[in-house]
Design a protein around this nucleic acid. Structure first.
Length: 283
DNA sequence: CTTCTTGTTACTGA
DNA sequence: ATCAGTAACAAGAA
């Protein structure tokens, strides 16, 4: 479940390790994972990276963009550095492996693999117009300077769905997933079932603060490699933010503030964790 | 064997 | 038209 912080950690790695390299070949193993004409990237230099929400872009010298979405189990792994980081269940030291869907080879011989066990993720080759089309339904990125308390407040006002569900709506806020929605609501002491439009500006401002704080801290921690989460850094190592989870995946464990047992319920069809004592329903 | 999980979209129904 | 709820996608774990 790579969310904004995990994708940003990958972007930062790629920004310092593959920008400037030239793609000599793109080999596609699973065709449904790639949309576009692979031969158009060959001979192209990577000139930069960017990210909106959970979508990662590699910009090519010819103006085309390679757009990635990792969905639940996607991984972007540098071939030259995975050795020495095999995980217990799956040997990462031999790539491509069973879940490798495609890989790039650069002119210096290094490789970049896109792995995705469940095949929900994708890689698309797009021109500028197609990139805009692909991202037109995304709301503001949480780390965008335009993502203000007032923007959060106004977006929350627009629906009466539970706030937990509203936070996961990528057309309102780009980058929040299940982990950070649960933990940000906990830090803000807001019960996830609270009607989105009942959140006042003061509470929205508090939530805004914690959303940015938690995303920023997770990036510093290298993102979250949780249970049932395939997230890895491009060098094959794991993130560390899972050790800072407040409520996510802590059902029946004591609240870190009041010791009450963390509850798990389903809201909007998604697993939702909260402290029944600390988090109050806003009415 | 069945059930559950997850991000996003397409579909269905109000 | 707009909004909300849910099946579908895939693969593996429990």
């Amino acid at each position: 479940m790579p969310e904004l912080p995990e994708v940003e950690v990958v972007r930062l790695f790629l920004d310092s390790h593959i920008v400037g390299k030239t793609i000599s070949k793109l080999e596609i193993i699973t065709h449904k994972s790639f949309i576009g004409s692979p031969e158009l990237v060959e001979g192209q230099k990577i000139i930069g990276t960017s990210r909106i929400g959970k979508q990662l872009s590699l910009h090519l010298k010819n103006g085309l963009v390679i757009l990635f979405h990792l969905k639940m189990t996607g991984q972007i792994i540098m071939g030259e550095s995975v050795f020495g980081h095999p995980t217990p269940k799956e040997d990462k030291s031999h790539l491509p492996n069973k879940s490798t869907r495609l890989f790039f080879t650069f002119s210096d011989g290094s490789k970049l693999f896109f792995n995705d066990q469940r095949k929900f993720g994708w890689v698309k080759l797009l021109n500028q117009a197609e990139l805009i089309e692909a991202q037109k339904n995304l709301g503001l990125d949480i780390l965008s300077p335009n993502f203000t308390p007032k923007y959060l407040y106004r977006q929350l006002q627009s629906t009466s769905r539970p706030i937990k569900t509203a936070l996961l709506d990528q057309s309102k806020f780009a980058g929040i997933g299940n982990i950070y929605a649960n933990d940000a609501l906990f830090l803000s002491r807001i019960h996830p079932i609270s009607s989105s439009k009942k959140i006042n500006l003061k509470k929205a401002t508090l939530l805004h603060h914690f959303l940015i704080k938690i995303m920023t801290e997770s990036i510093k921690n290298g993102g979250s490699t949780a249970k049932d989460n395939k997230y890895l850094h491009p060098d094959g190592s794991i993130g560390q933010h899972q050790f800072s989870f407040q409520v996510y995946q802590r059902a029946n464990e004591p609240c870190l503030i009041c010791q009450a047992l963390i509850k798990k319920v389903t809201i909007g069809g998604r697993g939702t964790f909260y402290c029944p004592k600390c988090q109050k329903v806003i009415r």
